[in-house]
């Protein structure tokens, strides 16, 4: 098949420009509709992470609800901070155990390190969001129990 190089280049250039313009537009448009916008609460309404994240990250939310953190009301912001960056805790989707987990669990982490040698990643044995009320906390657990969309 004959390849018309000039034409191909022109089309690709248009494509690239078009795409570039498009995601530039996306970047700026509809702030309230994008997920960042959803974190700006309407003052009158009860607003926290769970109401949206029950849909967007359903499994994590369900796991958290059934976990010890959920029962003890250790809410999302305690570990993750505020997504608009204006909170008192720096925002992080993957909090660092050495700073975040240690804030409450420092004594237990030290005991673990002394007995078994520490792990930089607590979630190897204590899966994120999953510390079920009825679990044996010292049993190795693999992530399980996927919930649906």
């Amino acid at each position: 098949m004959r390849i018309d190089v000039k034409r191909t280049i022109r089309v690709l250039a248009v494509l690239l420009l078009g795409v570039g313009a498009f995601f530039l537009y996306l970047d700026r448009a509809f702030p309230k509709v994008r997920c960042e916008g959803a974190h700006l609460s309407v003052p009158e309404k009860y607003a926290d992470c769970v109401s949206c994240h029950a849909k967007s990250t359903a499994r994590a939310t369900q796991d958290w609800k059934e976990s010890k953190h959920g029962a003890m009301l250790v809410k999302c912001v305690v570990c993750h901070g505020e997504p608009d960056g204006k909170g008192s805790i720096s925002f992080s989707a993957n909090p660092d155990p050495a700073t975040i987990c240690a804030r409450c669990h420092d004594p237990a982490m030290r005991r673990m390190a002394a007995k078994f040698g520490g792990s930089a990643d607590c979630s190897i044995c204590h899966p994120r969001h999953q510390n079920p009320l009825h679990s044996d906390a010292y049993q190795h657990k693999t992530p399980s129990g996927k919930t649906s969309f």
Binding site: R34, G81, G85, S90, F91, S92, D96, T99, I100
Partner: peptide, 9 residues
């Protein structure tokens, strides 16, 4: 929306 601040230091 998907930007991440550095993990809380």
């Amino acid at each position: 929306a998907c930007a991440l601040a550095a993990a809380g230091q």
